[in-house]
Nucleic acid binder design. Structure first.
Lengths: 245, 245
DNA sequence: GTGCGCAATCGTTGATCAAATGTCAAGATC
DNA sequence: GATCTTGACATTTGATCAACGATTGCGCAC
């Protein structure tokens, strides 16, 4: 056991554990989150669990009804579509802005995260892979220097993780996604915002297709092919700025 | 006094009260939030206050340092600019989408919120005016049917409120802002997305200018004129969609 | 200038309060 | 006679409280 307990509070651990459990479907969609039950499983009292649930509720991953407790939000094709609509718009803006400020430090941090992710993939460590993947993307978004935009990305991102997990079980498309990561990074290093946005759009489109496939398989539902956005062309002309300085 | 106490939990009341206090600068930027002190003021125990602080932290309005407590985040010209960068992008996308689905129910709800806001302005009730204003905007955003996008708007929106309050003291521009609201609504009723986005851009530009003016006056700082975004033209070509159904 | 100790404050716990739901039985209705 | 409704009670569960424990930072002494 690490000394994590000294730096991470009980609520931190509970939040992380709960998030993983929801992502991995150990707590299925619609299931109620019972404070006492979870507290016993984690070996803490109810309060840190309560706080963890409130944190997830702040991201809209669980729904809280006052005096009745919390439930895991349901998954659906509509929600998946909605989630990726938000991601496509917000993350493309962030990537576009990031290209303007991308430094060698950013490049190093992103490359390190990528290497870590691929290592974790090989080792079969899903949690580490997920962490590294998130770090890769947010190193980029942070490079945009648009803190409130990045803050707005987080809820949709975390919700997307719920759909991504099932998709990740299919190893076939893994090489493609890794390739897309590399291309995004290399475009950013060249400060080629347009190309970075193109690859990001490809990347998210790949992700949502695979996720939709997996969800359709789960629910036994058929689905029409995805309409690919033309956001790449649009963003080449997008130069919104509020300059006060 | 209403029976609100029966439906709102102590934490709800504490969160609302704290938010107002931060918005109105009764708790100034940088000030620490002491649990016991706030609990005594509110006549509750420390727990609901603690939860209220965590909620505000989830929106990044306050910063929490573990074992050291929470502080109100500082205001700055850079943060104001960043906040409105996010708002300009996200809220314009929402408005653009809302134009596609705007119904008479949406129109009625938005018009009611506007009427309520103007009544509250006349009555000098800042809290009611703020509430009605938020309701007006989010009726529109909700009409976009993009839940995760709207969810992503919230943090920047709430942060903007911190700057808006000072600006609202200047009554001169009030009529202009009310006019902008009316124009946005009327464009949406006509399903004229481009015009709605143009007015929204004007509206946010007006807001950020007034807010920057107020902030500059407070800090004794001079500032250059604002560069106005060309988002309106861009959005006319923006038709990103992920269709899975 | 350095180190020790005390006070202040957050994090966590276990207990208590209150609301909501499910159960069971008695009575009414068909 | 069977079924549905109703109301009280018990149980479950979340919300709140007050006390304890741990950590940090400040101040004072050396």
């Amino acid at each position: 056991m690490l000394d994590r307990a000294q730096i991470d509070s009980a609520a931190d651990i509970a939040a992380r554990s709960l998030f993983d459990a929801i992502i991995e479907r150990r707590i299925p969609p619609g299931a109620p989150l019972r404070l006492k039950e979870l507290a016993e499983q984690l070996g803490t009292s109810m309060m840190p669990v309560r706080e963890a649930i409130r944190r997830l509720a702040a991201l809209d991953l669980v729904e809280i009804e006052p005096r009745k407790g919390a439930r895991v939000r349901e998954l659906s094709m509509a929600d998946l579509e909605d989630t990726y609509f938000a991601r496509l718009h917000l993350e493309n803006i962030a990537v576009w802005e990031a290209a303007k400020h991308f430094s060698s430090e950013h490049a190093a941090a992103a490359a390190a995260a990528l290497a870590e992710q691929e290592a974790a993939q090989v080792a079969g460590d899903r949690v580490a892979s997920r962490d590294a993947h998130e770090r890769f993307h947010f190193v980029i978004y942070d490079a945009s220097r648009k803190e409130w935009l990045v803050r707005g990305i987080l809820p949709a991102w975390r919700n997307a993780e719920r759909y991504r997990v099932e998709a990740m079980r299919h190893v076939e498309t893994q090489a493609q996604r890794n390739q897309e990561h590399t291309e995004i990074l290399s475009a950013l290093i060249r400060h080629d915002g347009l190309e970075a946005v193109r690859w990001m759009t490809n990347h998210l489109t790949t992700s949502v297709e695979v996720a939709a496939e997996a969800l359709a398989a789960e629910t036994g539902q058929v689905r029409a092919p995805i309409r690919v956005p033309k956001v790449a062309e649009v963003l080449s002309r997008l130069d919104v700025g509020v300059s006060l300085a």
